[in-house]
């Protein structure tokens, strides 16, 4: 978990123009945006998020899922589930949005060097991990093995399908996908993601595991990793709570002594294992 400096005025949105908005699945969209204020760079670390403001609708926290090596173009993936995110789905090239960020902690990709890296993504949880995957692939020689495991609801909800194929074909990378159910035309695996974890090739003593997905999926994945001997400190998860100010002031995302927006969203499991067991949190 690494921390990055906050922007100059973290409450003031910067104006960005939509460059492209692409439909990924029936309800999920990926859009790229570029700054309008003449500042071409927008550095971020994999795992961080932005507060995206669609004027007239509202502001939502969305993880950055683009390539950190291309800071001039910010990429976010949104699932259209509420009034604001549904409005984001209809964005067109040239539309303007406000951006505050980047906020929060990041995936420990540098700390994982020298060992195995295991990416465990479920559903839309692949989006916050995609920036980390780009960074890992850019530095591939520094890791012993890179293993990507992805679970989705069904074949038609698989996110970044073309990239997953490319990663699977890339030497030195292992990439497996499973879906919860499929029709008979699907030629891949059907079953839960913990089955992929049990069969993946990595050294439990020399691995850093990065997990993102629905909380139930993350809990099962952590249990599967622990049963193989992976330590709590080697497991990192990205938590999702209601984030509003993104600065740890408003308290909406408070998680025991932590603020997910400021101390997270990426947190080492040994820091939150006890908190996850508290029903009221």
């Amino acid at each position: 978990m690494a921390k990055s400096p906050l922007p100059a005025d973290p409450m003031l949105p910067r104006r960005f123009r939509v460059v492209e908005n692409t439909r990924e699945t029936v309800d999920t969209y990926t859009f790229s945006i570029a700054a309008m204020d003449g500042v071409s760079e927008f550095s971020f670390a994999p795992g961080q998020f932005n507060m995206l403001y669609l004027f007239g609708y509202g502001e939502v926290p969305i993880s950055i899922c683009g390539d950190p090596a291309q800071p001039g173009l910010l990429v976010h993936t949104v699932r259209a589930t509420g009034s604001v995110t549904q409005a984001f789905a209809s964005l067109k090239a040239g539309d303007m949005i406000g951006v505050r960020g980047p906020f929060g902690s990041s995936w420990p990709v540098a700390a994982a060097e020298g060992g195995d890296v295991l990416i465990v993504a479920g559903g839309l949880g692949l989006a916050p991990l995609r920036s980390a995957i780009y960074r890992l692939l850019a530095r591939e020689g520094r890791y012993r093995r890179i293993v990507i495991l992805y679970g989705a609801r069904s074949p038609d909800t698989i996110l970044f399908a073309e990239e997953l194929k490319r990663w699977r074909d890339q030497p030195g990378i292992s990439c497996d996908i499973t879906v919860d159910y499929a029709d008979a035309n699907w030629q891949g695996r059907v079953g839960v993601i913990t089955q992929l974890i049990a069969q993946a090739e990595f050294d439990p003593q020399q691995v850093v595991a990065l997990i993102c997905g629905p909380e139930i999926m993350m809990r099962f994945s952590v249990a599967a990793l622990k049963s193989l001997g992976v330590s709590d400190a080697s497991i990192h998860v990205s938590l999702e709570r209601s984030m509003k100010c993104a600065l740890g002031h408003c308290g909406h995302c408070q998680f025991g002594p932590l603020f997910v927006c400021k101390d997270g969203p990426v947190l080492p499991y040994d820091q939150i294992a006890t908190l996850l067991g508290v029903a009221e949190l």
Partner: peptide, 17 residues
Amino acid sequence: SHAKLQALDVYGEGSTT
């Protein structure tokens, strides 16, 4: 246990991660 996890449909509608 796997069947229960599948039945929960954790990636289904309403999931934002």
